[in-house]
Design a protein around this nucleic acid. Structure first.
Lengths: 210, 210
DNA sequence: CAAATTTTTGACTGGTTAATAAAATTCTTG
DNA sequence: CAAGAATTTTATTAACCAGTCAAAAATTTG
């Protein structure tokens, strides 16, 4: 009975303006969080007036959720690629490399995600979190299989996953601290991080010879 | 020439109210960040009116800086305790345990600190950051000494430190995610984290037999 | 090119923000 | 207990907040 007027497909201008807004909003939301950011500030960053922004996203919450939705989708990718193979160690190493690459290429998304979690995931609890939860548990099960088969050293798969997330995302989320404490490390930060982390996890996860 | 009226020592009421305010402010600032938090909200959480709060801290910035200052002091403790000893592996293991304990006991401080860094350290850049920087570099030097002497495996000491920070603080900063994804793990989360992390770092840092 | 539609602008609203001033109250101390 | 100091309350401010509305301008389409 509702929704008698079906949503029309967006025009060229709608697509362009929405992308401009989303880019500006990601920049601002990722730095100040949902409550700390104002739509005025986002509109200014996007080079437009506040009413114009609100013509494309009818309120602040909707804009934020759209970005959160995209971020989750982006974040899910590397985890989904983790699948059963001959060599679990290579598979996990590749996953770590992908996560480092995500930190390097999408630091704003990483910080937005981190901020949302640090505030207690107040927005889009289910809509956003359920897909992650589902994939997460299937990958935990995969890790457990590998361990049971003796192809991976027996470690707690949950803490392994949390630890991989922590170490890889740290380079995006805490970049201001890293740049402040060790500016000389910045030029080769991400290759160095990979050269540090991958062997660390390989060493821990290599099963002992029987 | 300035400061003709010397600061008088605080009364009992001043000490008590200021602590009440600081407790409430830590709760609110750590969740919403500096800009996302309002002094109204903090005053309400402290059970008082906004003007009353402002009688004890003359503005929002000063209140935030005071908390930041205390947090940095608290955060410096475990790092300062890292000193030269017979067994570098035990020393680093103990440092990791202390950091995990900090996450468990002071999650709000951890999140406040993380939020400040994620926003680009806009407050108290020097006042707050210099002491950390100084101690940090002396500990980096200590790690390098251990490596040079062959008492520690040759790893990048900067990435080692960042990785220890990332893995230990993750349990406080991302607790909402951890609790959402693995509620069954929560009761033993911190002991399990220690049992996971300490051996991981020990394995990586154990020098190869010559 | 003209009518219809979409987009942009400017003026405005009620609510919240950080902060101030002064009056009223409570506490401390001689 | 009374004077003085410290504390709390009430009233108020100007700036900013998210969001609305209608008219003007630009674009699309017949």
């Amino acid at each position: 009975m509702t929704n008698l007027a079906p949503p029309k497909k967006p025009t060229r201008i709608q697509r362009e303006r929405r992308e401009e807004i989303l880019t500006a909003a990601l920049e601002v939301f990722s730095q100040f969080g949902f409550r700390g950011a104002s739509i005025n500030q986002i509109a200014e960053a996007a080079g437009m007036s506040t009413p114009k922004l609100l013509y494309y996203f009818k309120d602040k919450d909707l804009l934020y959720r759209e970005i959160l939705q995209r971020t989750i989708q982006l974040w899910l990718g590397p985890l989904q690629m983790l699948t059963d193979t001959d060599d679990p160690l290579d598979e996990i190493s590749a996953y770590i490399s992908r996560k480092i690459e995500m930190s390097r290429k999408f630091p704003r998304h990483s910080r937005l995600f981190a901020g949302e979690i640090m505030q207690g995931i107040p927005h889009a609890r289910n809509e956003v979190f359920d897909p992650l939860s589902s994939i997460f548990h299937s990958k935990i099960a995969l890790l457990e299989t590998w361990i049971d088969e003796g192809r991976l050293a027996p470690v707690d798969p949950y803490h392994l996953m949390y630890s991989i997330w922590a170490t890889t995302q740290h380079y995006a989320d805490f970049s201001a601290q890293i740049e402040g404490l060790s500016p000389q490390k910045v030029p080769t930060l991400y290759p160095d991080a990979e050269a540090f982390l991958v062997p660390m996890y390989r060493k821990m996860l290599t099963p002992e010879a029987p």
